[in-house]
């Protein structure tokens, strides 16, 4: 069975892929077909409920159109999530592959560094860092990426360790293959599936993390915003029943993270096929 058909058999994965496509379209094309003012404030039209004055999702405390805000915030959330997830994957994969393949003392030292990084809760570290550097979008990507590479590092190390002991790798070594050749032709191709699947989850987690940082008021600065920051702004009006400030960005986060998780599960079904007897 081909990979695509195997993926398609996981119905949730298909739902996830479609939801992702729709969301991406929404944040990319949305502002083009539904342009709104997202820089200058309009306090006269603040906190309007949905449907009033041509604002389908109402307005927030500064008078920004909420639907339009959702699209521009989504751009930031997705951009930071995807790039930070990618950065974490690259750094983590290299670190883990080297530790797992070289082994011995190098491995021990490298993994203690990972253990230490994991022992510091990411949110704590991120809050400290955002008091030190001004949180711009670019900075957020770098900082989040550098905080998130630890789990892929561990994962890839475990994978490399296990691939290293497979008979086909041992056979290659016994044939006189160089380390370079062994890594390039056997180790990397056989770990790439794990890397890809993990990258999906990595992006999902990065999007969540961006939201946490912004919610705690330490994220990107206004007028730039993201879904987490929208929630942070909206929480002050929660007791006045302004649900439209909370639900749309919150659901957007839930949907995109869910979708990525479903897609990741589907990809894993595809990857796991390797080596299975027909």
């Amino acid at each position: 069975m081909t990979g695509l058909r195997r993926f398609a058999r996981n119905r949730l994965a298909v739902v996830g892929a479609v939801a992702l496509a729709v969301l991406v379209l929404f944040v990319l094309v949305g502002p083009l077909v539904y342009p709104t003012e997202q820089v200058a404030t309009d306090l006269g039209a603040a906190n309007l409920p949905p449907g009033v004055d041509g604002h389908p999702l109402g307005t927030d405390a500064l008078g920004y159109d909420n639907l339009g805000r959702l699209t521009v915030a989504g751009r930031v959330s997705l951009l930071v999530g995807v790039l930070a997830g990618a950065l974490a994957t690259v750094v983590g994969t290299l670190w883990g592959a080297v530790a797992g393949y070289v082994g011995g003392v190098v491995d021990a030292v490298m993994m203690r560094v990972v253990d230490a990084g994991i022992a510091i809760p990411a949110i704590f570290l991120l809050l400290v860092l955002s008091t030190i550097v001004r949180p711009t979008v670019g900075m957020m990507i770098v900082v989040l990426g550098l905080v998130s590479w630890l789990v892929p590092a561990r994962l890839i190390r475990a994978e490399a360790l296990s691939v290293r002991t497979r008979d086909y790798v041992v056979a290659a070594r016994a044939m006189g293959a160089t380390h370079r050749r062994t890594v390039l032709t056997h180790v990397i191709p056989n770990t790439v599936g794990t890397v890809v699947v993990n990258a999906t989850f990595q992006v999902a987690d990065a999007i969540l993390l961006v939201a946490y940082i912004s919610f705690l008021g330490m994220g990107v600065q206004p007028p730039t915003t993201d879904w987490g920051a929208m929630l942070n702004d909206g929480i002050n009006y929660i007791y006045q029943g302004a649900w439209w400030l909370i639900l749309p960005p919150g659901l957007a986060i839930v949907i995109v993270v869910c979708a990525l998780n479903f897609v990741g599960d589907g990809l894993r079904d595809v990857v796991d096929v390797k080596g299975r007897t027909a």
């Binding site: 008979d167 044939m175 032709t185 056989n190 390797k274």
Partner: peptide, 19 residues
């Protein structure tokens, strides 16, 4: 090592599944 060949026990594991 070019003058040595090797065959292992596990027929499933000794060939790289991706090649």
């Amino acid at each position: 090592l070019a003058d040595v060949g090797v065959v292992f026990q596990d027929p499933g594991g000794s060939l790289d599944p991706r090649r």
